[in-house]
Amino acid sequence: MRCPFCGHAESQVKDSRPSEDGAAIRRRRLCPECGGRFTTFERVQLRELTILKRSGRRTPFEREKLVRSIAVATRKRPIEPDRVERMINGIVRQLESQGETELPSSVVGEMVMKALKSLDEVAYVRYASVYRDFRQTEDFAKFLSDEGLSEDGVVEVE
């Protein structure tokens, strides 16, 4: 593994252990060149996924991009980080087990929306506002009423 500090091509593994959910191996590494210490994670990848964007462009699936977008939606919300990590792992496993190597970005977006809705309504609405490209306050109001959510955050039952 290349050192992120000095770029040296090799590093030594000082400690390995499974992550909290057992879906990854956490490795503490030491660079013999500069002495820098860093952590890497090793995960199983069932298949290489390609995401087909709305524009028609194809890009490789990046788990970290998924993590960042969910982190923005869940920022400052009372959600345990391990619940978010389990949700992300579940989404990635679902994507990899679809049987397809090329998936439309809408599939990823809808999976995230569904998972966030059951996790935290505020995070769900935050993600939806970006994913559905809300432009005006009326877009929020329409979305909230379509989803059975009131504007004051109380779920309406029909």
Rank of each mutant, 00 (worst) to 15 (best):
S16R: 14
R17C: 05
R17L: 07
P18Y: 00
E20H: 06
E20R: 09
E20F: 07
E20I: 03
D21V: 04
G22D: 12
A24K: 10
A24W: 14
A24C: 13
I25G: 08
I25W: 15
R28E: 02
R29E: 01
P32Y: 11
E33D: 13
E33W: 06
C34P: 13
C34E: 12
C34H: 14
G35P: 14
G35K: 13
G36L: 01
G36C: 04
G36M: 01
R37E: 13
R37Q: 13
F38K: 10
T39M: 10
T39W: 05
F41E: 07
E42G: 09
E42P: 11
R43Y: 05
V44K: 09
Q45W: 04
L46K: 11
R47D: 00
E48Y: 01
I51R: 08
L52P: 12
L52T: 10
K53R: 15
R54P: 07
R57S: 01
R57E: 04
R58F: 10
T59H: 13
E62R: 01
E62P: 00
R63V: 05
E64L: 06
K65H: 04
K65P: 08
L66N: 10
L66M: 13
V67E: 15
R68M: 08
I70P: 09
I70F: 04
I70Q: 09
V72A: 08
A73Q: 02
K76A: 09
K76R: 15
K76C: 07
K76L: 08
R77D: 05
R77K: 10
R77F: 12
R77V: 10
P78N: 11
I79D: 04
P81N: 03
P81W: 00
D82G: 01
D82K: 01
D82Y: 00
V84P: 12
E85Q: 14
E85C: 04
R86I: 03
R86W: 04
M87I: 04
M87T: 13
M87V: 04
M87K: 12
M87R: 12
I88V: 15
I88P: 14
N89Q: 12
N89P: 01
N89L: 10
I91T: 07
R93A: 11
R93P: 02
L95S: 00
S97T: 15
G99C: 05
E100G: 05
E100V: 03
T101Y: 05
E102P: 04
E102S: 14
L103I: 15
V107A: 09
V108E: 09
G109L: 06
E110K: 13
V112Y: 03
V112Q: 09
V112C: 10
A115Y: 06
A115L: 10
A115T: 06
L116T: 03
K117G: 01
S118K: 04
E121R: 12
